[in-house]
Design a protein around this nucleic acid. Structure first.
Length: 391
DNA sequence: TCTGGGGTCCTAGGACCC
DNA sequence: TCTGGGGTCCTAGGACCC
């Protein structure tokens, strides 16, 4: 039996935040623009290609960006706008296949294997690219390959507005010469260690003989990376993987370091308020609450606590935030504070489950029905009341 | 280059249950 | 009284990505 190759597209929106701004205001197309960086401590999330010509890059701080490109226009992040364009983008893609996985707000994987209808995949890729420019003024790069990893690597090769096909037989010619730091999954911590043992390109990794040494650098994921370097990846394009959020958080780096306890507490309260708003918007409830504290020496602690019940209630959550902070006091000035919640689930399922599954065992055993009712009120009262009032 | 903010996934140890 | 192995959940930290 002949084994059928899959046809996977990876589609990446080029300089996405900047492209959205230019799509809204065509005048900006003539200018070098950067997005983000509201304070001196801020960095740019992205820059358009006019600014990139000057050497401006994402994650660059505003000071350096202005030094390289004095005329750069810095715009604040407008997440609502980008969400709008992201939805348009994915809606257009969904005309071509039912199997789409969101990689993030600005990239997606398409499994086109059974959706080409006799057309050449390259023609379809071209059509998608042209339509996104014509209909929404959004430039994309597309990688076409037999698996997700290769498609992802391929889409990165020609930017902006590129289409790159990466077939199995082209791996040695196209993939192997790429620098190892460009391999998806290899970051700035692993890359220097790989270089240290003589691996400079993806080809070097594929052909590396001393697996004992390599294991020290890559750990348990060694085989996965070797396979990928050979173009082998069995990942499946999974719709909705990205949609079901695993955590919701807010964090902020302050203009000046925070020295006072009382000041930190006010900031934590503000962060908690934002997080709770988003949890409610998302119609979720959470069980685990975490704080993040980064000191001015850049050391960082994360502390979390898991409640016995799910909640969306500000006071339930803030009480934990404050206790976690109190339990981990330090004299060091604070640069960043963050609050996040995880162990999320749909708030409707929480509501349904309350009286059926989530009754504390000890309440039943020890004191019978009246105690049970009290316990429910105690644990879920605030949530129930909120639910009742809502909408 | 004095270094953001939103996330995900992985690992490893400990507690606890059976 | 001593002791097993598996499974799951929680916590902390680290690496990575956009």
């Amino acid at each position: 039996m002949e084994k059928k190759f899959k046809i996977i597209f990876h589609i990446d929106l080029n300089a996405f935040f900047a492209s959205c701004e230019m799509a809204e205001d065509k005048e900006l197309k003539k200018l070098p623009i950067g997005i983000g960086g509201s304070s001196d401590r801020g960095v740019l999330t992205t820059a358009n290609y006019n600014a990139r010509k000057f050497g401006v890059k994402s994650a660059m701080n505003v000071y350096d960006a202005k030094r390289l490109c004095p005329n750069i226009v810095i715009l604040p992040v407008n997440f609502d706008l980008y969400s709008k364009y992201s939805t348009l983008f994915f809606n257009l893609l969904s005309e071509y296949t039912d199997i789409i996985e969101k990689g993030s707000i600005d990239e997606g994987y398409l499994d086109m294997t059974d959706y080409c209808d006799g057309r050449h995949p390259l023609d379809i890729a071209e059509e998608i690219q042209n339509r996104l420019v014509e209909e929404y003024d959004l430039p994309v790069s597309i990688g076409v390959a037999p698996n997700m990893f290769l498609a992802k690597m391929a889409s990165d090769i020609k930017k902006p507005l590129g289409i790159t096909v990466l077939r199995k037989r082209e791996i040695k010619d196209i993939l192997w010469p790429l620098p190892i730091e460009d391999m998806f999954g290899i970051g700035k911590k692993t890359y220097p260690n790989l270089k240290l043992i003589g691996i400079k390109t993806i080809g070097d990794l594929a052909e590396y003989k001393d697996h004992r040494k390599l294991k020290l650098v890559l750990g348990n994921r060694m085989q996965e990376f070797i396979d990928k370097a050979h173009g082998i990846h069995n990942g499946v394009v999974t719709p909705h993987r990205y949609v079901d959020m695993k955590s919701i958080g807010n964090s902020s780096t302050y203009m000046q370091d925070v020295f006072e306890y009382s000041e930190a507490i006010i900031k934590l309260e503000k962060l908690t308020t934002k997080v709770v708003e988003r949890v409610k918007e998302d119609e979720s409830v959470c069980k685990t609450i975490s704080i993040q504290v980064r000191y001015n020496d850049f050391t960082q602690i994360n502390r979390s606590y898991t409640l016995e019940h799910y909640t969306e209630n500000f006071y339930d959550i803030y009480e934990v935030v404050e206790r976690l902070f109190d339990d981990n006091q330090s004299d060091k000035p604070i640069r960043l504070l963050g609050v996040s919640v995880s162990n999320l689930k749909d708030s409707q399922s929480n509501f349904r489950q309350l009286d059926i599954f989530n009754i504390p065992k000890n309440a039943v055993k020890e004191e019978g029905v009246m105690r049970l009712l009290d316990s429910i009120n105690e644990n879920y009262g605030s949530t129930l009341i909120k639910k009742g009032v809502k909408k």
